[in-house]
Amino acid sequence: MSEQFKNIVNIISVVAIPLMILVFVLFGIFKKVKVYEKFIEGSKEGFDVAIKIIPFLVGMLFAIGIFRASGAMDFLVLILKPITNLIGMPPEALPLAILRPLSGSGSLGLMTELMNTHGVDSFIGVLASTMYGSTETTFYILAVYFGSVNITKTRHALPAGLIADLFGMLGALFICKLILN
């Protein structure tokens, strides 16, 4: 069942992009759009958008970067440990939970390390990979998406995003306990 689901999704993922391009281009021709000209016209924005997000990304990534380099994470783990012990979260997984919304590549490395030391199929190994898959790099998305339209007043987007991350982590912990214990 799960294998079948995986196969179906895999096939869709492989076909999606070529098919989408084909459909759009054919549909454009059918509607008598000057496809190549319009493609170039839209394409020109790509450069601007990428350049526009640079300041937002620099601001965000450098703050996250020095946070990681300073070893502040160890202190944060120390402070949060009593709370996570209470809900039965293994202390080894805590740094991953903190890092996940901050850094995509960083948390991927941490996940791999956890699976290396504790075993891929151990509770911590499965929990780590589930935690990684349960949410996205909130700060990066925030910087890129808001940066592309020059928005600095982000209102409730960050708190709501962090609440989502928190519940993603709790959900991952809950389901892993349910499956493996």
């Binding site: 989408m20 454009g28 759009v33 493609f39 170039i40 839209g42 394409s43 924005e45 790509g46 990428a50």
Partner: peptide, 21 residues
């Protein structure tokens, strides 16, 4: 950000066609 330029240009171009059509 620079790594995004290529993929951005491609998809914003394709999306423009979809929009116009």
């Amino acid at each position: 950000a620079l790594g995004l330029i290529g993929i951005m240009a491609l998809w914003l171009g394709i999306m423009k066609i979809a929009e116009e059509a």
